[in-house]
Amino acid sequence: MPNNLAAVVLAAEGEHNPVVPIWQEIVIGLIAFGVLCFILMKFVFPRMEQTFQARVDAIEGGIKRAEAAQAEAGQLLEQYKQQLAEARTEAARIRDEARADAAGIREEAATRAREESDRIITAGREALAGERASIVRELRSELGALSVELASRIVGEALADEARRRGTVERFLDELGDAPTATGSKR
């Protein structure tokens, strides 16, 4: 039986049918192919995919960075414009305020000046009136004193020159009498 088998095997080897696979080669081929697949699929191709992805990221990242920079620039521009507009309105407001202030100040100064002049005028008038009154008062009292003095002098002195004296007194009295009535009528 073993001899028989060996003979068959030898015969088969002698024939070498190319379409009948050699099973040992299938085993070896499977192992070799398996090793190749394992190493390439575990250590090489995933890293290639990573590299491809990294390249895509690098390109897309560049675009994204540019877009971000542009957006930032746009934002800054917007900000500056806004600030400029704010500054303009601020300046206009200040100008308006200043104008209003100036008008106010002028008005105030004018009012104050008018009030001051009025006050001065009033004060002048009052002072004048007071002075006049005191002068009148003084003149009245002086007139009395003078009258008394005059009377005493008239009485005391001799009636030396009666006529002259009379003339004098009358003239005096006339003068006195004229003065108060003149000023009084004037007021």
Partner: peptide
């Protein structure tokens, strides 16, 4: 035959491992 297969596999593996040991962009 089996020797050729092993050599082919070895060359392929070595080439790829060496070429891709330090991949760059």
């Amino acid at each position: 035959f089996t020797l050729f297969v092993w050599v082919a596999v070895a060359i392929t593996i070595i080439f790829f491992l060496v070429a891709y040991r330090n991949p760059k962009l």
